[in-house]
Nucleic acid binder design. Sequence first.
DNA 1: CACTAAATAGACCGATTGGTATAATCGTGT
DNA 2: ACACGATTATACCAATCGGTCTATTTAGTG
Lengths: 191, 191
Amino acid sequence: MNTTREQILIATCSLLEEQGFHGTGLNQIISTSGAPRGSLYYHFPEGKDGLAAEAIARTGELTAQRIIDGLGSGAPLPQALRGFVEHIADLVERSGFRAGGPLTAVAMETATTNERLNAACRSAFDLLERAFAAHLDAYGLSGERAAELATFIMATIEGGIILSRTYHSGEPLRRVARELERLLVIEALEQ
Amino acid sequence: MNTTREQILIATCSLLEEQGFHGTGLNQIISTSGAPRGSLYYHFPEGKDGLAAEAIARTGELTAQRIIDGLGSGAPLPQALRGFVEHIADLVERSGFRAGGPLTAVAMETATTNERLNAACRSAFDLLERAFAAHLDAYGLSGERAAELATFIMATIEGGIILSRTYHSGEPLRRVARELERLLVIEALEQ
DNA sequence: CACTAAATAGACCGATTGGTATAATCGTGT
DNA sequence: ACACGATTATACCAATCGGTCTATTTAGTG
């Protein structure tokens, strides 16, 4: 049910990820999704902004779930986190450096120029941050320390994705993966 | 001399920083710089791409110099790095979250869609990375370890800027600043 | 002062943008 | 079979996009 709407949303998510908000035109969304223009405005009467905001929200939920799943494999957190980031490196590489950091470009473009999308990005980042924090909490860190480290981990991964996509190489992300493992091991020792 | 060309370049740098490549129109560059359309194409006959590429290159050089200066204040590297990142947090805040991460948005938008700008971003990141690596080298780390950590540090700062601009708060960057200080202190102990 | 190249000024272009309007079609309950 | 709302399909719109063109002004040199 609602496959047209779904196709539009999926196409928008991946186009925003690759090209950002302003780099993605409605015509491109239409041709990628296969849906006609009329359907787009029927399902998303608030136009490009509304569509993008919903795409960002969906991306946030999806990504948060991936974090929760990816870090809950049973392995100790340091190794799980390293594996998680290395898995992102694989995905970025296999996409031809088109995917990765599904929020980054939009977040930067719209931080001060589009309140609605800025709010959407903030909510999405909140979800990711809480997902990381929950695992850090379970790892034994205090709530405050978990929140602090969650922010840091998110920053490192975001940054790693930017560098990997720019350099067309998974190596920056893999460096991030190794450092994060080290960091968490040390964090546990200091407790 | 050449102040018109200079004005255009300066305006382009700051507009790209705030809005990214596709979000920045030539009309906006013209009105911000005060230069007429004809002058833009006289000084930058290769159009928007050429202008943006040069703006990115200049931003890279400028930012690399800031790293070299900022970390060479005489303080021990861990504290200097922390101060450097906290200084960025101040700048981001004082700009109303319009500035910071002058390459990020363009790098993400163009990683796979514009070879010329992708190359420009890569060169710019190279400059930054080498600036960090030089200081880490002087701090006593091996060349390989310095390069590895330089990548990681860049990633954390890039990520911190994204989060700070999105959240309209310097706090994420300040968390990054504290973690990086810790990291470098530990790194020295382990030597 | 005259000549010329550098630079500015802005009118103009086709293409594309996000968005609207309306007609045709589909799907379902009676 | 029919009606009716849900949905799709397209033609169309003003505004803006990046880019071109040429006329004019400015600055330097003989």
